[in-house]
Amino acid sequence: MHNVRIPRGIQDLVDVFDCFIVDQFGVLHDGTRPYPGAVDALVMLKQAGKTILVLSNSGRRSAPNEQRLLRLGFQNGSWDYFLSSGEVAWKRLEGKLKERVGGEPLKCLLMAREGDRSAVEGLPLEIVDSGADADIVLLSGSMGDRFDMDHYRRLLEPAAARNVTCLCTNPDKIMLTEVGPRFGAGRIAEVYAEMGAPVTWIGKPFPEIYEVAVEMLGRPLAARTACVGDSIEHDIAGGQRAGLPTVLVGTGILGMLTGAEKAELLRQHGAEPDYFLPAFVW
Rank of each mutant, 00 (worst) to 15 (best):
residue 61 R to K: 07
residue 78 S to C: 07
residue 59 G to D: 09
residue 54 V to Y: 00
residue 50 K to P: 09
residue 70 L to P: 07
residue 66 E to K: 03
residue 65 N to F: 15
residue 57 N to K: 07
residue 54 V to M: 01
residue 51 T to E: 08
residue 66 E to Q: 13
residue 59 G to I: 00
residue 81 Y to P: 10
residue 66 E to N: 03
residue 55 L to E: 03
residue 67 Q to K: 09
residue 72 L to N: 02
residue 55 L to P: 07
residue 67 Q to P: 09
residue 53 L to C: 09
residue 60 R to G: 12
residue 68 R to S: 08
residue 60 R to M: 11
residue 70 L to W: 11
residue 59 G to Y: 08
residue 54 V to H: 00
residue 76 N to G: 15
residue 78 S to M: 06
residue 48 A to Q: 01
residue 76 N to E: 15
residue 57 N to V: 09
residue 50 K to N: 06
residue 78 S to I: 12
residue 49 G to W: 04
residue 67 Q to Y: 11
residue 58 S to R: 00
residue 67 Q to D: 14
residue 79 W to E: 07
residue 74 F to S: 05
residue 71 R to V: 08
residue 63 A to H: 12
residue 53 L to F: 02
residue 53 L to M: 05
residue 59 G to M: 03
residue 80 D to H: 13
residue 67 Q to S: 12
residue 58 S to E: 02
residue 74 F to T: 02
residue 60 R to T: 04
residue 48 A to E: 01
residue 57 N to C: 06
residue 63 A to W: 11
residue 79 W to H: 00
residue 59 G to P: 15
residue 64 P to L: 02
residue 56 S to N: 02
residue 70 L to C: 13
residue 65 N to A: 15
residue 75 Q to R: 13
residue 76 N to W: 12
residue 76 N to S: 15
residue 55 L to K: 02
residue 63 A to N: 11
residue 59 G to T: 00
residue 75 Q to L: 15
residue 57 N to F: 05
residue 57 N to Q: 01
residue 78 S to T: 07
residue 68 R to Q: 10
residue 81 Y to K: 10
residue 61 R to W: 05
residue 73 G to E: 12
residue 73 G to T: 11
residue 70 L to Y: 13
residue 66 E to Y: 08
residue 60 R to Y: 04
residue 56 S to D: 10
residue 64 P to R: 00
residue 77 G to C: 05
residue 68 R to E: 07
residue 50 K to L: 12
residue 66 E to P: 07
residue 78 S to E: 03
residue 72 L to T: 08
residue 75 Q to N: 13
residue 64 P to K: 00
residue 52 I to P: 15
residue 58 S to K: 01
residue 50 K to T: 05
residue 48 A to G: 00
residue 61 R to L: 08
residue 73 G to H: 00
residue 72 L to M: 14
residue 60 R to A: 03
residue 51 T to Y: 05
residue 73 G to I: 12
residue 73 G to N: 02
residue 51 T to H: 12
residue 59 G to S: 07
residue 70 L to S: 10
residue 69 L to D: 02
residue 69 L to T: 03
residue 71 R to L: 15
residue 82 F to H: 13
residue 61 R to T: 07
residue 62 S to D: 04
residue 76 N to R: 12
residue 77 G to A: 06
residue 71 R to G: 14
residue 71 R to N: 14
residue 68 R to T: 05
residue 74 F to V: 01
residue 51 T to P: 00
residue 77 G to H: 08
residue 63 A to M: 08
residue 66 E to L: 04
residue 75 Q to F: 13
residue 61 R to G: 03
residue 81 Y to C: 02
residue 70 L to G: 11
residue 63 A to Q: 14
residue 81 Y to M: 10
